[in-house]
Amino acid sequence: MDIFGYYIPIELFFILCIIFVVLIICSSTFGIISLMNKSDSVSELVVRTNSWWKMAIGITIVATAPAIIGTIVLAYVVFVALREMLSIIPLRTADRTVLVASYFAIPIQFYLAYKNYYYLFQIFIPLVMFISVSVILVLTGETNRIGRSMAIIPTTLILTVYMPSHMVLLFHVSVSGFTVGAGGLIIFLIMITAFNDIFQFTWGKLLGKRKILPKISPNKTWVGFIGGVLTSGVLGGALSFLTPLDYIKCFYMGLSLSIIGFIGDSIISAVKRDLKIKDTDDLIPGHGGAMDRLDSIVLTTPTFYYLLIFFIEN
């Protein structure tokens, strides 16, 4: 359908309407509650919902605007996430040259993804950046604890740049008879990942007893995990109209994204425990830093992309 002369697929319009209606309901409910009850937990909810508004607007822009704008927005988000990761990891002064090189990897990686140079996109960070980082570190000449930096910087690049950059490749997925476009795929991916966090949290709070990873995140329970995985699968099936797949494949997609999202969350949690920090930053009020929000999506993005390609071809 057309909105002010701008074409938006009807499915995309429908799901965006639902998202914003839910946000309006949340905002007004919490607003009314906060008028009567001025406790910290209520104001925390209000702050969180306000941040969700901003994130929802960002997602809407990525999903509906032309690919070039979506790519630039995603590249900037990845830049913020990488900056945050590099800030919390203790690195040496001699690593500063390599850090600048790491930042330059972002525009190159996103350009390759935007142009759909598939092979270069695949090898740029795991191969070219891996070698470049080591070479620059060697040329810097500071050998004390150099191995640590050689390991940590490429890992950070893979986690925060390579993985989420797969989202840009979704702009190039074309299936005959599929009219929703990349926007639908992006909304599907982000909604499953975000709601999976909420499902796992809610199931764990309601029924959870046995902890699944007591040393890393004591709030994660077996009931939360299994309940979250199943609910995400059901949500995946329900959102199948956003993808070119049928609802059974979307159910499996929901299950896999949920498991992988849990793993991504746990990885970042473990790193935060190691560094003795609660949040990676205080960029998004009520949520912490960018990496606290992106922790599960960094792993679900490539999973979604490759599973999607697999399901389309088979």
Partner: peptide, 18 residues
């Protein structure tokens, strides 16, 4: 906090960090 890593003494390279 952190400015010493963005541009320390005697360095010219500016690195974006929080």
């Amino acid at each position: 906090d952190g400015f010493g890593r963005v541009l320390p003494k005697n360095k010219i390279l500016i690195v974006p960090l929080i």
